[in-house]
């Protein structure tokens, strides 16, 4: 699909696999995609900035249990300069679940003055859970600002103990930490009712 000059396109996918979303952005357009997975699925998002001054935002959160697996693939291409892209991809993996992030970011030679950020943060709640991160950055322009970061970790034991020392039981403390980890993706959703609904949902999802 195409997002016309100056238009805004925002779409939130909740537990709905993003089969193969392809978006071409014209100058000055803004695209925001939020993907939330509490169940297995595969997401593939391809966005190309074809005009100047485009804004692209991709936020994805997966919270998985059991044997569930989610793959999220993003392909962002800055074909013209002066645009921005921001990606925050988070996985919370419990039990034997598996997450995979493939992040393909390309800034062509003439796409000067591009600002692109790609961040992948993952939280493993079990020793058997597994995360694979495959960032792929191709930056051919020299006057750009591009950052990339990926990290996978566990719950902060010192934070858990700190909360327990204040009388909060361990399970509730885990829940608060996991919710805190997930919240910033959900907070990007503009639709207040949906955002509140999802924030309430995660209270029930986290065990």
């Amino acid at each position: 699909m195409k997002v016309s000059k100056g238009d805004i396109f925002e779409r939130v996918f909740v537990n709905e696999p993003v089969v193969d979303l392809q978006i071409a952005q014209e100058a000055g357009s803004r695209v925001k995609i939020v993907v939330v997975n509490f169940a297995p699925g595969t997401n593939r998002i391809t966005i190309e900035q074809l005009g100047e001054g485009c804004e692209t935002e991709i936020y994805a959160l997966a919270y998985l249990k059991g044997e569930d697996a989610v793959t999220t693939e993003t392909h962002v291409k800055h074909a013209v300069g002066g645009g921005t892209s921001n990606q925050l991809i988070k996985f919370v993996l419990d039990d034997h679940s598996r997450g995979r992030f493939i992040g393909d970011l390309k800034i062509v030679k003439d796409a000067q003055q591009t600002e692109a950020h790609q961040t992948n943060r993952n939280l493993l709640l079990s020793e058997e859970a597994e995360m694979r991160t495959q960032p792929q950055l191709e930056i051919y322009a020299d006057d750009v600002k591009a950052t990339h970061g990926a990290s996978t970790g566990q719950l902060d034991e010192s934070a858990l103990f700190y909360m327990q020392q204040r009388g909060i039981d361990k399970q509730k403390a885990r829940q608060l930490l996991v919710n805190a980890f997930m919240k910033d993706v959900l907070n990007t959703i503009s639709d207040e009712a949906l955002r509140e609904q999802l924030l309430n949902t995660i209270d029930g999802v986290v065990e």
Partner: peptide, 20 residues
């Protein structure tokens, strides 16, 4: 003291106090 990003003082303190 431990920093706990994403957990507000209010939420933290209310949970603790009500547990007690």
């Amino acid at each position: 003291p431990v920093e706990i990003p994403g957990v507000s003082m209010t939420n933290f303190m209310r949970t603790a106090l009500n547990a007690k």
